[in-house]
Design a binder for these strands. Structure first.
Lengths: 233, 233
DNA sequence: CATGTTTATGTCAAAATGACCTTAAGTCGA
DNA sequence: TCGACTTAAGGTCATTTTGACATAAACATG
């Protein structure tokens, strides 16, 4: 059956919460939205996305959306869900099925990202009313992120190549919304074998210099089963 | 972008493994496949599916596929994945994006199901080479099922309205492929609060009559987050 | 009424978790 | 230079959860 097919992406990154009085290092989840410049929902904020190219895979389309919107490459990308209820584009509008991906980009890179004219970053838990069913989609993506953080090492997707255990813990805390015991966190991460000690330390801090770790790439970021990276590209 | 959109369903049920010498009660995972009667892949076995109706939701389409193939209503239905790599239908064939669902049907009902001419049930781990990328899809669905069984109460989707703890445990064992300690299983299930004692017992067995339980519907079968049953229908 | 069979409950050691304490290693200011 | 300060790193211990196994309870059958 012919139906209009679109691919959208929920792009998550961390940045300072920004509220006065808050700890400078306290971070929260942000995502970029684009302002629609045509009907329906003209003027409203929406998830970045676009049509699926002729010879383009689904994940490929999501990646190129991400590049166009933020100029960034994702540190993690996974399909979220396909939305296709007949009413989602409005009453008598054309029926659109959206395959939605979600992505993580590193905090540092996101800070340096060039941002387009009609693009703005929003705190994920303080969104305005979005176009279409995009509020539901973001809620679901957030739920998936918070779930996945508990049983995978996905949080490192917010960080750079190397990072300290404190940075990793702060990413976990930002996603989960609660503090974690640093000692117990260290114990669990070390036991999982997910990290590799680089042998280097982070200098320039006014206290004991923390070790720098790298992600152990022999273990998958997030278990995706038979759908290894190459299956969908 | 216009693209052909199809909805397929991986339908799982339990039934006796059927190998001689095996314990009569040992069950394994089976699924129905349909024989293709047109190109491409004419004559090969494939997942049941079809095009998406004009005013039909995605899950709706999956349900109707299931009804057409087996005449059954699913005890559980969840979206699996959207497959859309350009090469998946073959070289110069038309590009098809498939939204795939997976479903559980009760063992008893499946036994009574009318089965069409070109439909046959296969053991999930002894499949022939299927049409398109359907082997990959089934593998992924199996992986998801086995994963989900560990952290949700989804296995009851294979059972009827009421069941004994032994029946529930056997469903778990069939999916996980390993035996579970009956005593520890009981302790965990009871602690989870997922079951409600019906007050009845199963009679007619030549040993201590087991209690019959019902699923506690105030707890979700499988946590799906903000995508409650009603979101996609 | 003894036997067989499975349900239902209990025990205990090992492993994992959560709360908290101590020491290490740097910067910074006096 | 030295003490204060701050965070890293590692350790202790009580509690909870898990896995392995033992015992009692309740029926059908002969």
């Amino acid at each position: 059956m012919e139906a209009t097919l679109a691919v959208s992406t929920v792009i998550f990154s961390l940045r300072a919460s920004g509220s006065f009085g808050a700890d400078e290092r306290e971070r929260s989840i942000w995502l970029p939205l684009v302002r629609r410049i045509r009907a329906p929902h003209d003027g409203m904020w929406a998830l970045p996305g676009g049509p699926l190219g002729e010879r383009e895979g689904l994940a490929e389309a999501a990646t190129s959306t991400l590049a166009k919107t933020t100029g960034l490459a994702p540190r993690y990308l996974e399909q979220l869900y396909a939305f296709g209820s007949p009413e989602r584009s409005g009453e008598d509008a054309e029926r659109v099925v959206s395959v939605v991906y979600w992505a993580l980009v590193a905090e540092e890179e996101a800070r340096a990202a060039r941002i387009g004219q009609n693009v703005r970053w929003f705190k994920a838990d303080e969104l305005p009313r979005l176009a279409f069913d995009h509020n539901v989609i973001v809620d679901y993506a957030l739920w998936r992120l918070r779930n996945k953080v508990e049983y995978s090492r996905i949080a490192s997707g917010f960080l750079g190549e190397t990072f300290t255990l404190a940075q990793l813990r702060e990413a976990y805390e930002a996603v989960l919304g609660r503090p974690l015991d640093p000692a117990n966190f260290r114990r669990q991460i070390e036991a999982s074998g997910a990290l590799v000690d680089t042998g280097q330390v982070l200098t320039g801090v006014r206290h004991r210099p923390p070790r720098l770790y790298r992600y152990n790439t022999t273990v998958d970021l997030a278990e995706q089963g038979p759908l290894g990276r190459t299956a969908e590209k």
